[in-house]
Design a binder for these strands. Structure first.
Length: 312
DNA sequence: AATTCGGGGGG
DNA sequence: CCCCCAGAATT
């Protein structure tokens, strides 16, 4: 038994769970994809959009997307170019292509019905460990152990006394998350387990935030190991990749032009993109333009035909 | 295990 | 300016 298991008594865990479940009942946000009327497909769309993109930016995009393509069959019939345009500025446009592919796979391999089994969900493009578990739990009521960046931070602070989750998801974090799940042998426990997933996530998003956590509003302030330890600073993580001058910035600027114009002659690509001002003062070298264009084509985000770069 | 992939919110 | 965000896929 490790030192972190030592204080993990059932009484303590149960107390924390009850407090956070009660807090969520009163403070959970009415996000559109949490509406009971939302389909499982709608939940999946929200989860993919929310991969590395904040709730505030996803909200309107999700509403518009679901209105245009309510189910997988609708999206499966769409053109990839329209899918990318609709994705807009949510970022990481490969997510849009993978969601499009997943819609097609649901139609062709699953009779048009999104599977509930996390193992089947995992096989669909763009769905990883987190999203598979989240859809199973949130949309289908299957009490999978959901672990996202919020939940990892909440668990780390309350039970491990650290300020943040590990840099990469560890076996210890998986074990702890599994131990914290309510017993699902009763109907009430089953419901609590699914609510626990979303409640812990919500606490991390609203109260137990990465920076400037609102501990004065926290339902488990007095149960928190991190607070008890005096809120030690998290170990410094690797510096985030710079944005200005990056390949991603150039790729993103090109995609912005393609979404607006549909296509552009590669001979005028540089001046057209630079004229949008998306690159700031950065003027890419020819080699970076080539790298960006080739990368977009390789990733299926654009096609190059007779010196014309266009949406797929 | 480390990199790459957008774009913007917010301290 | 810098870190962070309901991660996934690739190397």
């Amino acid at each position: 038994m490790s030192s972190t298991d030592h204080q993990l008594t059932e009484h303590h865990v149960s107390d924390v769970r009850t407090r956070i479940l009660d807090w969520y009942a009163d403070n959970g946000r009415d996000l559109p994809w949490r509406d009971p009327e939302t389909t499982a497909w709608g939940v999946l769309v929200s989860e993919v959009m929310l991969q590395q993109t904040q709730v505030s930016r996803v909200w309107d995009s999700w509403l518009a997307w679901m209105k245009r393509w309510p189910g997988p069959a609708d999206l499966a019939e769409a053109e990839a170019s329209d899918v990318l345009i609709m994705w807009g500025r949510l970022g990481y446009p490969r997510r849009a292509l993978r969601l499009h592919e997943t819609a097609k796979a649901v139609v062709t391999a699953h009779n048009g019905v999104l599977p509930a089994d996390p193992e089947l969900l995992l096989q669909l493009p763009g769905i990883g460990e987190y999203t598979a578990a989240a859809v199973s739990s949130f949309a289908f009521g299957i009490p999978e152990v959901v672990i996202d960046t919020n939940i990892r931070r909440v668990h780390a602070r309350i039970f491990s006394g650290k300020g943040a989750g590990a840099p990469n998801l560890t076996a210890a974090e998986r074990k702890l998350a599994a131990q914290l799940m309510p017993d699902t042998s009763t109907a009430q426990g089953l419901q609590d387990a699914n609510t626990w997933n979303v409640a812990a996530m919500e606490l991390g998003a609203l109260i137990c935030t990465a920076r400037a956590p609102k501990c004065d509003q926290c339902p488990v302030l007095n149960q928190c190991a991190w607070v008890a330890a005096g809120k030690p600073e998290p170990e410094t993580k690797a510096k985030t990749q710079s944005w200005n001058g990056s390949d991603r910035q150039v790729r993103g600027a090109i995609m912005g032009v393609l979404r607006a114009k549909g296509a552009v002659d590669v001979g005028t690509l540089q001046t057209t993109v630079e004229a949008t001002g998306q690159l700031g003062r950065h003027l890419p070298e020819v080699s970076q333009w080539d790298r960006a264009v080739n990368g977009l084509v390789t990733d299926g985000l654009a096609v190059l035909d007779d010196k014309i770069l266009a949406l797929p």
